[in-house]
């Protein structure tokens, strides 16, 4: 019975997530207000965005085995791109979003074509360095475009009415859910397609793929550009949900937290990075809110998350996804055998 329902579990989860804003249920301890209160919806929307960003990053890290330290650059490209076009140039949101994502994809293709000439640790360093340039540029506020360290609040007059105001937080929530769904569809389609299997083959043994007559470079570039475009889309969504962009989104710290999310959830698994992203973003926001009330270093979300992450690397290899798999094996072995 449960086995037959299992393929529909993601759909069911999506359905529950979609109708959640109509629930007035309140879950004390987990959320401050009722589920449909703007505060909770905002928090959940951020969680969903990071779930999508982490899964998109895992296309590179967990699937293609590319340990990029510069993913924040692509997120920032989308976020700042849409914010600048809307707030400075008064573009309508949808064309601004489309342009930002396309431009970010082209940028990813350019940078990827350089970075992928290296491999291993050198690739990590090159991507880190590129992202560093982006962070510096954003912080210097070239031509007053990015707002420097202050960040760039989204000019609300340029947005559709349905995305403005506290009462419309629910629409931002749905937007975040839509972004997450897009990432899941793209990544899982790639997983099932020959490309996905080849990427995993590439991660495990590059020579074998080269022997098959496929170009590892071109395949990796496809993965890099796809992941970059998904990150930019996430950046656009984040800019809308957060009502603007701050330079933190371009920082190496953001990339590091994406890595933490993917590993925490289970890199390379179907749902691991997504769950890791949601969990991380939730803990990050909740801990920040609880911050003052906790003793010493526990008031610092990053202390708790960093420590949790180190423990996870040691004791939960395979992350949350690995944990659930082991749990199922355990259950299976406990079941009475028939026949």
């Amino acid at each position: 019975m449960t086995a037959r329902l299992k393929p529909f579990a993601p759909l069911l989860a999506l359905l529950v997530a979609a109708v959640l804003p109509w629930s007035t249920l309140s879950v004390p301890g987990l959320f401050d207000g009722a589920l449909n209160s703007p505060g909770t919806l905002q928090l959940l929307a951020v969680c969903l965005v990071f779930g999508g960003l982490a899964l998109g990053y895992d296309l590179l890290f967990g699937r293609a085995g590319l340990l990029s330290f510069g993913h924040a650059l692509h997120v920032a490209a989308g976020a700042y791109g849409v914010d600048i076009l809307v707030s400075h140039y008064g573009w309508p949101l949808w064309s601004a979003a489309l342009t930002a994502v396309l431009a970010a994809a082209v940028l990813a293709a350019l940078l990827g074509s350089v970075a992928l000439r290296t491999s291993g640790i050198a690739f990590s360093m090159v991507t880190l360095a590129f992202a560093q340039v982006a962070q510096i540029t954003v912080n210097r506020d070239p031509g007053g475009l990015t707002g420097g360290e202050e960040g760039l609040p989204m000019r609300t007059s340029g947005l559709p009415a349905g995305l403005v105001g506290v009462l419309n937080t629910v629409n931002l929530y749905w937007l975040a859910l839509a972004f997450l769904t897009v990432v899941v569809l793209v990544v899982h389609t790639i997983d099932r397609a020959p490309l996905g299997r080849t990427l995993i083959g590439l991660r495990d043994d590059e020579r074998r793929i080269a022997v098959l007559g496929l170009s590892p470079y071109r395949l990796k570039l496809v993965a890099f550009v796809t992941a970059g475009a998904l990150a930019a889309l996430g950046g656009v969504t984040y800019a809308l949900v957060a009502g603007g962009v701050s330079p933190h989104i371009a920082s190496s710290e953001l990339t590091l937290s994406l890595i933490v999310m993917a590993v925490l959830g289970g890199a390379g698994t179907r749902w691991g990075a997504l769950l890791g992203g949601i969990l991380y973003a939730y803990l990050d926001q909740r801990l920040a809110r609880l911050g003052g009330g906790l003793p010493g270093p526990f008031g610092q979300p990053l202390f708790v998350l960093g420590t949790l992450f180190i423990l996870a690397v040691y004791f939960v290899p395979g992350g949350l996804a690995g944990l659930s798999r082991r749990w199922q094996t355990l259950l299976g072995s406990l079941k009475p055998r028939t026949g």
């Binding site: 933490v260 202390f303 998350l305």
Partner: peptide, 9 residues
């Protein structure tokens, strides 16, 4: 990854 976690914490 452990050094990444350590740098954050």
């Amino acid at each position: 990854l452990v050094t990444v976690g350590l740098s954050l914490a």
